[in-house]
Simulated scan of single mutants.
Amino acid sequence: MQHFDVDPDALRRAVLEDMARYLAEYTLPLSGATYGTPWSKERVAAELETMRTLLVDPYPFEYFSEDRILPDAERAAPVVRSAWVVAEDGSYRLLFDPAVREYVLVSGTPENGWGSFGIRGDAPSTFLAR
């Protein structure tokens, strides 16, 4: 697998900047606009602080893409993709997939492999979806 040229330090800085921007711009959704109870800004701040403790020095990683980023014709079986791990939390990893310039949440184990399941986007909201 090809690992795109990524500056790990720049990637870590980008994640931290995304986290700060996410918190600064966070507002409660309108009533009825979401399922469940929306998080308060204080809860979001606490979750982002937890995320900060789970950041790692980015390193290359391969995962099985089992979500919908690929056209139907290419989705017959999970595809192995190259990415960079930016955070780890038990059976979850937050990856940066440079080919599509998105963060992706994967779950799994070292023994069974790691696969995506459709949670993609910016670093904070993708990781907080775990």
Rank of each mutant, 00 (worst) to 15 (best):
S107E: 03
L95T: 02
M19E: 13
D67M: 04
E47A: 15
F61G: 00
L30M: 13
H3V: 07
P78S: 13
L94H: 09
N112C: 07
L55G: 02
F127N: 13
W84A: 02
F127A: 12
P110Q: 05
A123L: 13
A14T: 11
A83F: 05
R43V: 12
G121D: 11
E42R: 07
P60F: 04
R75D: 09
G113I: 08
A87L: 00
Y92S: 12
L28Y: 04
G32R: 03
A24R: 14
H3C: 04
D72C: 00
F96C: 03
V106L: 07
V80A: 06
T37S: 10
T50R: 15
A129T: 08
P110S: 07
F64W: 13
F61K: 11
F61C: 07
P29D: 01
D122N: 14
F4V: 11
V44N: 02
T53V: 01
A83V: 04
V100P: 00
A123Y: 10
V44E: 01
L54N: 10
L94Y: 02
T126H: 12
D18N: 13
L128C: 12
P98R: 12
T27I: 08
D67E: 14
P98D: 05
V106R: 03
P78I: 02
M19A: 14
T37Y: 04
V85H: 10
G121H: 06
G118R: 09
E62A: 01
L105R: 15
S91H: 00
L30P: 02
T34M: 08
V106F: 01
E88I: 03
A76E: 15
F117S: 11
A123N: 07
K41P: 02
Y22Q: 03
E49L: 10
P71T: 14
G36D: 07
L23A: 07
G121Q: 10
A87N: 01
Y22P: 05
P58K: 11
R52S: 00
Y103W: 03
N112V: 00
T27P: 00
A20P: 06
V56I: 12
L48V: 06
T53K: 09
V104D: 04
S31R: 13
G113T: 06
G113E: 08
